[in-house]
């Protein structure tokens, strides 16, 4: 039972990451390859504020959202001047920078040792310490993220984002300063990723830099490419499949240690097969 709860919580965390990244990659067509940076900022905000300073989890999450959105604002101000392959490379570069901040700012993050003893959330005397409670809380935040993403996607703003993906120069001629739109969605997306980060560090009760590498960003990208670009449902299903896949491999008779190592190889193969036969992903309507 605990095992299933554990997987469900992980699926939810990755679904939130997928939803948030899909707003940038799927809807706006910007191949943001550094999403783990903002996931990490949310996680560290919660770990530092709750474990070291005793701040309430929900306050720490709000702080994480603000910190992550603020970082995205600064990074996005540079990034939004790029498009295409350059956008991908520059965003990847920022992921590496933030990762090395996690690793090297030992006074704040304890570097590679990580921050242990992150408490589970509590609100009005209710502690979300048991798996079921935490699952409910995580599901609540997933629902919130889904509604927020849907609100953005269905707004006029969302339509402008799609037109940027289709032809940025053409939409500019109709009066949109696209840099602001690209920046805005990047900031919104980073804020949502911080929610997932907060949940992770409180759930695992520990945070260290190894969770926020470029590989992690690629994994989140894989989720949405698999599930379908600019499909919110696809982001959730993508998380479900790619998180559960290595577990399924374990039940298929592979030893546990091998299954874990095979995760990357198998999702790589999965993606290659998918791109060959269904390049828009499971539920995607659009191709990058």
């Amino acid at each position: 039972m605990d095992y299933i709860l554990h997987l469900a919580i992980l699926v939810i965390i990755y679904a939130i990451l997928g939803l948030s990244l899909n707003l940038v990659v799927g809807y706006t067509g910007l191949l943001a390859s550094g999403h783990a940076a903002f996931y990490g900022i949310g996680a560290y905000a919660t770990a530092i504020l709750t474990a070291s300073l005793g701040v309430n989890f929900f306050v720490s999450m709000a702080a994480g959202i603000i910190a992550s959105a603020g970082a995205a604002f600064l990074i996005g101000a540079v990034l939004s001047r790029f498009d295409g392959d350059y956008y991908a490379l520059v965003s990847l570069g920022f992921n590496v920078i933030i990762y090395s901040v996690f690793l090297n700012w030992q006074g704040l993050t304890r570097g590679p040792l990580g921050i242990p003893g992150v408490p589970r959330p509590a609100l009005f005397g209710i502690e979300f310490s048991s798996g079921v409670f935490f699952l409910a809380l995580a599901a609540f935040f997933l629902a919130l993220s889904f509604l927020a993403a849907r609100f953005v996607a269905r707004s006029s703003f969302g339509r402008v984002l799609k037109s940027i993906r289709e032809d940025e120069k053409a939409i500019q001629v109709f009066g949109y300063n696209t840099v602001y739109f690209k920046l805005a969605i990047f900031v919104i997306s980073a804020g949502m990723a911080a929610v997932a980060g907060s949940l992770l560090s409180s759930y695992i009760t520990f945070v260290d830099p190894s969770s926020f590498t470029v590989m992690e960003s690629v994994f989140i990208l894989a989720i949405i490419i698999f599930g379908g670009l600019s499909s919110l449902k696809g982001s959730v299903v993508g998380a479900l499949v790619l998180v559960l896949l290595p577990e399924a491999l374990r039940f298929a008779g592979f030893p546990q240690s091998l299954a874990a190592q095979m995760r990357q190889g198998v999702y790589g193969l999965f993606l290659i097969a998918l791109m060959l036969y269904r390049p828009q992903g499971l539920f995607g309507e659009f191709k990058l």
């Binding site: 339509r159 799609k162 037109s163 289709e166 032809d167």
Partner: peptide, 11 residues
């Protein structure tokens, strides 16, 4: 012609 190809005509 520069349309927003993967969007509906109305959009």
């Amino acid at each position: 012609v520069r349309l927003f190809e993967q969007m509906p005509v109305l959009d």
